[in-house]
């Protein structure tokens, strides 16, 4: 598992990661969410010992990464699918990695088959699509059969089939008891893949909760209504005095936020408005996320201006 404790990172006085604390537990896919520049990649680099924290620490299986012997047997990481030399073959790239941690050479063929690259094992990486590079990066992460996996935006550049593949793979890896941390900006994808979410913005922890709990807490419930007489509905909901937060949607429908459907139905009945649609809609993870990180986004827009 990964334990992040008070992790802080400053670059030239600018705080990129700010007193971050969370855990990545075994048997669970933990989604790591945040707007671009929130500090996700920096956090992952700190976990892997590629950068030094200004304060706090990140422990992998109880120890700092730099102290692990044969680290690929304990943590598999995919940071940047482009960080390889295009002149090597897929097989060649994995062979040196395997040798660096004393892993048996047969693992190279095994992981290439596992990610579906067995047919192109002997081809130079230069000719690989981004999706193939991502698969190769995942193969590299799996090489040491590690109990902890750390993947930065692994679905980038994957086609729909590839996305489904990685979703299934991540779920399987977690089912096998591994701790899986996966960052993404694709919320809908995370909603399907992650059991747990860690959300950061401006380097700070915004949420650390089960995915369903996160949506419940931060996602709003809206009631969508449609009436036989659209004008009457508009007059009712558009007018003052009912105390509801209602906005007109397309096609004469209205959306009411923060009210029970019973109350809306009663209000309509009392005013002689006949409703033919009344539906409760839950915010998607994306909407919950957008609202939650709105502050950080605004901050960045200001900073850029």
């Amino acid at each position: 598992m990964i334990e992040i404790q008070g992790l802080t990172k400053e670059y030239d006085g600018r705080r990129v990661v700010d007193a971050l604390s969370f855990e990545v537990r075994p048997g669970v896919v933990t989604g790591f969410l945040g707007p671009n520049g929130a500090g996700k990649s920096t956090t992952m680099r700190l976990v892997l010992g590629l950068d030094r924290p200004t304060a706090g620490q990140a422990l992998v299986n109880g120890r700092p990464y730099a102290q692990l012997t044969e680290p690929l047997r304990q943590v598999g990481a995919l940071l940047d699918a482009h960080a390889l030399h295009g002149g090597r073959t897929a097989q060649g790239h994995l062979r040196w990695l395997a040798a660096s941690n004393g892993l048996p050479a047969r693992r190279v063929g095994e992981v290439l088959a596992q990610v579906g690259l067995a047919d192109v094992a002997g081809r130079r990486i230069r000719g690989f699509s981004l999706g193939m590079r991502q698969r190769l990066g995942v193969a590299a992460a799996l090489l040491g059969d590690p109990p902890v996996l750390l993947l930065d935006e692994p679905v980038n550049g994957l086609d729909p089939e590839g996305i489904r593949w990685i979703r299934t793979l991540l779920r399987e890896l977690a089912t096998e008891g591994r701790a899986v941390l996966v960052s993404s900006h694709l919320m809908t994808e995370m909603a399907l893949t992650a059991d747990h979410l860690v959300v950061i913005g401006r380097g700070r922890l915004l949420a650390d909760a089960a995915t369903s709990e996160f949506i419940d807490r931060h996602g709003r419930t809206r009631v969508r209504v449609r009436a036989v007489d659209a004008a009457k509905l508009a007059a009712l909901l558009g007018g003052p005095g009912h105390g509801l937060d209602a906005v007109e949607a397309e096609g004469g429908a209205w959306e009411v936020t923060g009210a029970e459907p019973e109350r809306i139905a009663a209000l309509a009945a009392a005013n002689g408005v006949v409703l033919y649609e009344i539906a409760v809609q839950q915010d998607s993870l994306e909407e919950a996320f957008m609202r939650m990180t709105a502050d950080s986004v605004e901050y960045r827009a200001e900073a850029a201006a």
Binding site: R45, L48, G49, L50, Y65, A66, Q67, L68, P71, L72, V75, A77, L79, D80, H82, A83, L84, H85, G86, L97, S100, N101, A140
Partner: peptide, 13 residues
């Protein structure tokens, strides 16, 4: 190629 990061995760020292 920034492969140095991959090398450094494989050999952290």
């Amino acid at each position: 190629t920034r492969m140095i990061d991959v090398s450094r995760t494989a050999v952290p020292r």
